[in-house]
């Protein structure tokens, strides 16, 4: 239990997807103009991560790893499909995104319209694939740990996009030098926020 909590807190604050690894920056920069859409996209990302990371974990464990296919019979013990990792992970993500898109379209047309192109683009949001690849690299032991890591990463990403959206809403009333307007100041702000987040470094429960 303590271990799970540790993974959760660590993936939100210490290994924050945006501030420590710059993942999902494209939609982070483009959809962070208002808090409302930012929250919507954040929830969608958390949801997609909640499903894809454990699914990818199981696929990795029972299909792709060297010797993972041994449950099919002894003849398969030497099969190593790990070179297919990228292909399989991205396929799972694309399928899940499609699912989320259909659910959102049905239950919240307003959110669907405001997210626009960025909903299908979750499929190419680096944070999603990144979480799966980090999950693979860090060798989590069971599916529960992988799930907690996935949700934590999603929550961390959401935290980042919602806070930058709030800052950008306020920023509209400030006098930023012209060449810095929009993209430039957002980069610098994100940098400053990342410095603040470094304060969490080394926290261990």
């Amino acid at each position: 239990m303590e271990n799970l909590l540790n993974i959760f807190v660590k993936s939100i604050f210490v290994d924050n997807m945006v501030f420590a690894f710059f993942l999902g920056m494209c939609s982070y920069l483009a959809v962070s103009k208002t808090v409302k859409t930012a929250v919507g996209l954040g929830v969608a990302v958390v949801f997609v991560l909640l499903i894809t990371v454990p699914v990818d974990f199981l696929i990795e464990k029972y299909v792709l790893k060297k010797g993972a296919l041994v449950w099919l019979g002894d003849g398969f013990s030497g099969v190593d499909l790990s070179f297919l990792t990228f292909m399989v992970f991205i396929a799972v993500i694309a399928a899940m995104t499609q699912l989320v898109e259909m659910v959102v379209e049905k239950y919240s047309p307003a959110l669907y319209n405001s997210l626009g192109i960025f909903l299908p683009l979750i499929a190419v949001n680096c944070a999603i694939l990144g979480a799966s690849l980090f999950m693979q690299e860090r060798e989590y032991e069971n599916v529960l740990e992988a799930t907690v890591f996935g949700v934590g990463s999603g929550v961390g990403w959401m935290l980042a996009i919602v806070s930058i959206a709030a800052i950008r809403e306020k920023l509209r009333y400030s006098n930023v030098p012209d060449p810095l307007k929009g993209l430039g100041i957002t980069f610098i702000l994100t940098g400053l926020m990342a410095i603040a987040f470094m304060g969490f470094m080394g926290i261990k429960l």
Binding site: F19, A20, F187, G191, L192, A194, I195
Partner: peptide, 8 residues
């Protein structure tokens, strides 16, 4: 060397 400076 730390990540934030890349952004800045």
């Amino acid at each position: 060397i730390l990540p934030p400076m890349a952004l800045i």
